[in-house]
């Protein structure tokens, strides 16, 4: 195994009854790159993604992260190793303020937070770091707003700040651009580039165009199988990809 691959899957498969959602997917994600996993609806991207983050168990195959077999690990434990996921529907804690959202993640550095007898003022030393993180995604002035009351694009930014707070070695992003307008897409692309410094990113995306300038490598899935892999040019010039994925409009 190459020491340069941070996340590796071997023959990853998932069957739901007779239906094979993902079959025999072998991925190698290089350390320090932005890797995109794309494909049309029903290609198995999200199933694949959920297996990588352990939210569903694979039917067969193996996943290793930093040369460590994580196939049978629990999701919280995988996160502790430094492999942290985002969600398709922006995952914030709506009734907590933006600051509190980030602080939940920062709290993990204290270890387990079972101290129910202590005042939460014990968390105040974390506020400065939380504000720094909010600042890094441009949310300083929303620190005390309830997360549920800020715009969709900002919720996404808040989610990034929260994920960054646990200092993950690798981030898995589930359709980070889903449901966004052009302006927001640019903003999120900028954010992804910003957070990719010193870390590896694997993102699942529906739209090939938005990942074009962003990702170093692209893997195309259709019907649960890997169809093509390479940089944007290689993939976009692949005839099978054009036919299966982009449709007549791009051919």
């Amino acid at each position: 195994m190459s020491g340069n691959d941070i996340l590796v899957t071997d023959g990853l498969s998932k069957r739901f009854g007779d239906f094979s959602a993902v079959s025999d997917v072998s991925l190698r994600i290089q350390r320090g790159t932005i890797h995109a996993l794309i494909g049309p609806n029903g290609a198995g991207k999200t199933t694949c993604f959920n297996m990588l983050t352990k939210f569903i168990a694979p039917s067969s195959g193996r996943i290793t992260f930093n040369d460590r077999d994580i196939t049978a690990m629990r999701p919280a434990d995988v996160a502790r190793l430094g492999l942290v996921r985002s969600f398709q529907i922006s995952a914030v804690f709506p009734h907590l303020t933006a600051l509190e959202n980030v602080r939940i993640a920062l709290q993990r550095k204290r270890g387990d937070s079972f101290d129910f007898w202590r005042s939460k003022s014990a968390l105040e030393p974390l506020n400065l770091r939380a504000l720094e993180l909010l600042d890094s995604v441009g949310l300083t002035s929303f620190a005390y707003s309830k997360a549920g009351e800020i715009s969709y694009g900002r919720k996404r930014a808040l989610e990034f700040a929260t994920t960054l707070a646990v200092e993950p070695e690798m981030m898995l992003l589930d359709e980070p651009m889903a449901g966004m307008g052009h302006e927001d897409i640019d903003r999120i692309a900028e954010l992804i580039r910003h957070v990719s410094a010193n870390r590896t990113i694997l993102m699942v995306e529906h739209n090939l165009q938005v990942v074009a300038n962003l990702s170093h490598r692209i893997t195309v899935l259709t019907r649960g199988r890997v169809l093509a892999e390479g940089d944007y040019r290689t993939v976009s010039e692949n005839d099978e990809v054009r036919e299966a994925y982009m449709g007549a409009g791009h051919a």
Binding site: A76, S86, F87, T163
Partner: peptide
């Protein structure tokens, strides 16, 4: 409170 609001997210941050 975070679990009440979004349990999968809390798990994804590394809390059991």
């Amino acid at each position: 409170k975070a679990i009440r609001e979004n349990e999968p997210r809390v798990i994804s941050l590394g809390y059991r």
